[in-house]
């Protein structure tokens, strides 16, 4: 085993245009620049990225078909999305009330599509192959955390507050399974399968601007992350430690599972990123609706301001290094 950390992998990741644009966003806020991407363009970038990786995954599934390997990956994704919020919740309850603990725990149980996409970009730079069906795992991992988070709050939080308000499970299930991100991702995956090679060929001009769109999106992410991080004052020490240690722990678990189920290095990194990332769009909104007492000033800054940059800058090369040593 070679335990020497390959610094060129780290610098290669940091010096890639998407990550540098993320830094540019952070710096622009620190320097109080008026750099801003007008809304709703960032929303369009995120829709584009989801559509592109959905179609790409669908096209790969069109060729590979449904296999036992796919079922195993989906099972592992479901397992991780269900257990991460549970242990996260009990750690967070040492510091927060059940409402905030459940909401933050759910963001950790769910995933960040852009971390996943940045991981794909890293693998392409390193010329490491991966399977497009990992996108199906990503789609599957977004919802269970919301359900588990609300269940945890119903069990522990309602006792604390003696609340008799009934949970509207219809709304929660709709938000969990039919939110815009999942609809587009799953829809694009199915369209990729149905349209086959012809569809993917026609889509090529659209696919060729993927990196540019990712740069724009990460620039905006940097701006938003820097602005939102200010909201953590008072809990910064605890949340900073939690938001760095938890992805590391989840990633270690992810690598262990990837080893057990025999994933390739590329797929293992993507699986690892799914377990180590936290949702900053779909889940905070769903949890705010399901648990109005939860404070979004914690969920979004933690997921976007700490976990996302940590994974993108340090996590991706570190996890891949560990994967290279173990798998």
């Amino acid at each position: 085993m070679n335990f020497l950390f390959d610094m060129s992998m780290v610098t290669g990741n940091i010096l890639s245009p998407p990550v540098l644009f993320f830094f540019l966003g952070l710096i622009s806020v620190a320097l109080k620049s008026d750099l801003e991407i007008p809304q709703p363009l960032p929303k369009l970038f995120s829709l584009y990225l989801l559509m592109d990786i959905g179609l790409h995954g669908g096209h790969e599934l069109y060729h590979s078909g449904f296999s036992w390997e796919l079922v195993t990956v989906l099972g592992a994704c479901f397992l991780m999305a269900s257990i991460i919020p549970i242990y996260s919740f009990f750690i967070l309850r040492s510091r927060f009330g059940s409402a905030d603990a459940a909401a933050i725990a759910a963001t950790f149980g769910s995933i960040s599509a852009v971390t996943f996409i940045t991981g794909i970009s890293f693998l392409e730079i390193q010329e490491v192959p991966y399977k497009g069906y990992m996108v199906a795992g990503m789609a599957l991992m977004e919802s269970p955390a919301i359900i588990i988070g609300v269940l945890l709050y119903n069990i522990y939080g309602k006792k604390e507050q003696k609340s008799k308000k009934k949970t509207n499970w219809g709304h929660i299930l709709r938000d969990a399974f039919f939110n815009g991100s999942i609809m587009l991702l799953v829809g694009a995956l199915l369209i990729g399968i149905l349209s086959g090679d012809k569809g993917w060929h026609d889509f090529q001009p659209f696919d060729s601007i993927f990196k540019g769109m990712l740069c724009f999106y990460l620039l905006d992410n940097g701006i938003v992350a820097a602005r939102r991080l200010k909201a953590l004052r008072g809990n910064l020490g605890f949340l900073l430690s939690f938001s760095i240690l938890m992805p590391l722990f989840n990633a270690a678990l992810g690598i262990g599972i990837a080893y057990l189920i025999g994933l390739s290095k590329g797929n293992a990194l993507l699986f690892c990123l799914l377990t180590a990332s936290a949702s900053y769009i779909a889940v905070p909104a769903a949890m705010r609706l399901a648990i109005p007492k939860s404070n979004p000033a914690f969920t979004v800054p933690v997921a976007l301001g700490i976990v996302f940059p940590f994974n993108v800058i340090v996590g991706i090369p570190l996890y891949y290094y560990l994967i290279q040593q173990i798998l």
């Binding site: 769009i281 909104a285 979004p296 969920t299 979004v300």
Partner: peptide
Amino acid sequence: QNGMLDHNCRAKIF
């Protein structure tokens, strides 16, 4: 009371 809320954030939550 809940601090600055701005629309210029993809997270509709703010």
